[in-house]
Design a protein around this nucleic acid. Structure first.
Length: 644
RNA sequence: GCCCACGUGGCUCAGGGGUAGAGCACUUCCUUGGUAAGGAAGGGGUCACCGGUUCAAAUCCGGUCGUGGGCUCCA
């Protein structure tokens, strides 16, 4: 393609290429395409990077324009709403100093203020009303670049000392831009919408105290959160989605379904009731079955160990704040927060040959971690939990195969639950132990194993553990949220600290590699995620009660009991609800309990030896022979099917 | 840990300086009813805990505990 050196080629979404002079703004490009587009445009994107409509272009690339119809315009809208929020607060309390705002991934924006007190819910209402007034003024955003000193002077003159300090954090060489809308001016990189009227709906959500720059040694500022959309309909959809998420909150559903509870006498430590414990044990059995067939040996190790062990493992130095301690007979002991050191002790009980390796230990032991009081939450962040934890001790040569095998097993597990997963490779962090050669080798091992899976993966530079790189698994649940579950980590430090050895083919001592592996992660947390993923309607194989038999009236109680017994004999988890209530009432209760099968029996069924099958989905399967149903349930349960 | 909000029977919530209310759930009785709530009666709470103010505190004040939202970076 012939290319004039002065012109920038822009590849438009339809594949055509237009060339513009350097310094042309996206807005001018839009105007060149059509005046309607220029009016409707909210923002632009160059090579996947969001850019402001007023930012002069300095290079070409793949170019797109966004209007209110594009979901990408949301960030432009929310980023602009930040300014409106700050403007509103300044109009109401002129002495407030503004810090910075930002948007996050969950359709929210925020702004931090230096204010002498916390914002109250009444303040938020007042601010929101003021924001609506400002939006109605429909000012355009104007972008301006300033020299560093001029910007500093501007904000000093405005009494915005926090801004002046923020200014100093901007690296040399980066352009310093300000945006104005009406009388409000803010230091900002953008990008913003063209005009305030493009922000169709705003809502303030909550306020919270935050440390300046997130550091608890700094002063506390007051943050306000809000959300904004192009249209009121989108705002409504957001609110509905929020409500939907609340309705499947495991902290609400869990106690409601009688799965677990908490007690203030053991904060953040769940009590699993029989139904919850059933699911718990079923998950453990599933993992046990999978890994025992792949050369793992399950071990059981102590809960409380001498503090010396934790000094040796490094946990005392690195992880002390996260541990529980106790003592007995003048000995300091610690409750284990992780299993790995105990597995090292087992490894060391005898001399290992390279012929013994790999050695794979699985452990479902209970772990305790002292999570700070403000960070615990339901089952997803607890102080007492178990993991489907395993450690593989192997030779460096075996490590790639072992990583590959672990990754494949993890994917098999997620398939069973219908989770889509995404792999992430996390590489050496700044703060780390071990030589660069060791890290080179470890990262190469993980990369090689991932390459052999043929799967796509993201790389998180610098996100590895201090003792080694890792592969993490992110899954996406039914309402689109992602969770990190499984992990495969390489560790050269623990073998070193515990002096682990094996005798190689050469008769000399060598150090084994240790692989940490979890698939579901914490069982507790996984149950929480599963409750929210399924909204409490567990797959049949995990449903604590699979079927409830409902006699139409007490006359058919005996037949119903017989049906229940036949199902139970066939291995199904069936119950009888012969209470003195109307059928509709008992159906409703079974439905709310998310029981997969509701089996209605009356005269017709008794005569034919059948049950009338109703599913929790509302589907009516009609009459079916009891034996056939028992077999059906048994088969789906054995195969851990997601079908009903 | 820090900021803010909240804590009334099993659940959802009303009340609010003068020694507690509703609906659902629970128990009993009536009803024997064919696919999401039949009717009646009854039992159940030291209003999270500790302390203070007051003639009087569930209510006001302080503290404690617990729960919820938030607290790296992205000016």
């Amino acid at each position: 393609m012939p290319e004039s050196p002065q012109l920038l080629p822009l590849e438009l979404p339809d594949g055509s290429v237009t060339e513009v002079a350097p310094g042309t703004t996206p807005l001018a490009v839009a105007a060149g395409i059509g005046p309607g587009l220029a009016r409707a445009a909210i923002g632009a994107e160059l090579d996947g990077r969001a850019i402001d409509l007023r930012l002069p272009l300095t290079e070409g690339g793949r170019f797109r324009l966004f209007t209110a119809r594009d979901p990408e315009s949301g960030d432009f809208i929310r980023h602009s709403a930040e300014h409106v929020l700050a403007d509103a607060v300044k109009r109401l309390w002129p002495d407030v100093e503004i810090d910075v705002g930002r948007v996050d991934h969950s359709e929210k924006f925020q702004y931090d203020f230096r204010f002498e007190r916390a914002f109250t819910p009444e303040d938020l209402e007042q601010i929101e009303a003021k924001m609506r007034e400002i939006l109605a003024e429909d000012h355009p955003f104007e972008r301006q670049e300033l020299e560093r000193e001029a910007a500093a002077e501007l904000f000093r003159g405005m009494g915005e000392s926090l801004k002046v300090e923020r200014l100093a954090d901007i690296p040399e060489g980066e352009p310093i831009s300000i945006f104005r809308d009406g009388d409000f001016t803010d230091l900002c990189r953008g990008p913003h919408v063209q005009r305030l009227s493009q922000i169709g709906a705003v809502k303030l959500l909550e306020a919270s105290g935050v440390y300046w720059k997130g550091d608890d040694r700094n002063e506390m500022l007051q943050r306000i959160y809000g959300t904004a959309f192009a249209t009121a309909d989108e705002m409504k959809a957001y609110e509905e989605q929020f409500e939907a998420a609340r309705a499947r909150d495991h902290r609400k559903l869990g106690p409601e379904l009688d799965l677990f509870s908490f007690d203030p006498l053991a904060p953040a430590m769940p009590f699993f009731h029989p139904k919850g414990a059933f699911i718990y044990n079923e998950l453990v059995d599933f993992v046990r079955e999978l890994q025992n067939g792949r050369g793992y040996g399950e071990v059981v190790t102590p809960q409380i160990l001498d503090i010396d062990l934790w000094h040796a493992s490094g946990h005392y130095d690195y992880y002390r704040e996260g541990m529980f301690f106790t003592e007995a007979e003048d000995k300091s002991m610690a409750v284990k927060p992780m299993n790995c050191p105990t597995h090292c002790l087992i490894y060391k009980t005898r001399l290992r040959s390279y012929r013994d390796l790999p050695i794979r230990y699985g452990d479902f032991g209970r772990l305790h971690r002292y999570e700070k009081s403000g960070v615990t939450s339901g089952l997803t962040r607890v102080r007492s939990f178990a993991q489907d934890d395993a450690h593989v001790f192997c030779t460096p040569e075996q490590s790639e195969d072992e990583v590959l095998a672990a990754v494949e097993m993890i994917r098999e597990i997620y398939d069973t639950f219908g989770f889509d997963d995404q792999l992430e490779l996390s590489t050496r962090p700044e703060k780390r132990l071990g030589s660069d050669e060791l890290w080179d080798r470890a990262e190469a091992t993980l990369e090689a194993a991932l390459a052999r899976t043929g799967l796509d993966y993201d790389v998180n530079e610098g996100d590895g553990a201090f003792y080694g790189p890792k592969v993490d698994f992110q899954i996406r649940d039914a309402i689109g949220r992602s969770w990190q579950l499984g992990t495969v980590q390489l560790d050269f430090q623990m073998p070193e600290r515990f002096g682990l050895q094996y005798i190689g083919a050469d008769g000399a001592e060598h150090q084994p590699v240790m692989i940490h592996r979890a698939m579901l992660g914490s069982i507790e947390r996984f149950i929480g995620i599963l409750i929210e993923h399924t909204a409490g309607a567990f797959p049949l194989w995990l449903a604590p009660v699979q079927a409830v038999v409902l006699p139409v009236s007490e006359k058919f109680g005996e037949y119903a009991a017989g049906v229940r017994d036949r199902l139970v004999e066939a291995g199904a988890r069936a119950e009888l609800d012969g209470r003195n209530e109307k059928l509709g009432y008992r159906i409703r209760e079974a439905q709310l309990a998310k029981v997969p099968y509701m089996l209605v029996v009356g005269a017709k069924e008794e005569e034919a030896g059948t049950v009338a099958v109703r599913l929790r989905t509302g589907e009516d399967r009609g009459p079916q022979p009891t034996d056939a149903l028992a077999e059906h349930i048994g088969k789906l349960t054995r195969t851990r099917s997601l079908e009903l």
